[in-house]
Amino acid sequence: MTEFKKIEENLKTEATRLLKEGLVTVVLAYGKGFDENHPMPYAAKTIADVENIVFNEYCNYNMARYLVRYPQGTKIAIAVKAADSRAVIQLIQEEKVKRENLVILGIPVQGMKNPKTGEIIDSKTTCGMYNPVLYDLLLGEEVHGAKSASPYDVLAEYEKMDKEARWEFWKKEFDKCIRCYACRKACPMCYCDPCFIDQSKPKWADKAPQSPGNMMYHLTRFHHLAGRCIDCGECSRACPVDIPLYLFHKKVAKECEEMFNQAAGMSIEDKPVLVDFRVEDSDKILE
């Protein structure tokens, strides 16, 4: 694998070139934070800004989250790791961004770390892929030969669980929720304005952080992400109380893949599975 420092250099070189040639107006990448272990999502708009770009093992952010913040038509360069590229694809499918307005800077990488725990981020909490699915430029060598477990392996333990135990498990987890909504805000696919949970007519849930409202928020959000979640794990890393949201998202993704034969964010030709159908879909899926 190409070293982090080398990727950082390539990122800077490409960012400078793209801005200098006027091909893009903003480069979405990673920038210096208050110390080395705390880099930040970063938007470089001038050549002088490029200096602040960094890349290290803590740059786990999914920059696709920021795409929708710029008006349609803005020429944007975006740095993406594997899962992030899937988010970009998904956003293209959903017509939130146009392919021709993007310069996708792919980063093949292995060994990203969760800044809170220092743990390696792998298929347990994300899709576990190493190479971007879609890119214009690759900023390092593709990772080959590294074995990656199925992103769904981690589910076995929970699928085995007895129904009542699983209910207790989730209830306990959701009861921890403080309704800060960082999960939806960190999620590249959560871009609605307003989000259903902020609606007052109809009001879907109480504002107080307690069981019924928390349950409504999470079940509905899982549903809204069905067939769209690209398993980047950002929601769970953002959560201040460490609710393993990724488990639920993975399960829904797995079910969708089994029912509809399509994984989220793998091709810009696809349509999101829940705004699509096949006449030959079977009624069996309803059983």
């Binding site: 930040m40 999502p41 938007a43 309704r179 800060c180 960082a182 805000k185 960190a186 953002a238």
Partner: peptide, 20 residues
């Protein structure tokens, strides 16, 4: 540029006092 506009910083803060 990076801010997600979530509520974490205000909820964990000892001196934020807004309520509804």
């Amino acid at each position: 540029a990076a801010c997600l506009s979530c509520g974490i910083c205000t909820f964990v803060c000892p001196t934020c006092y807004c309520f509804d």
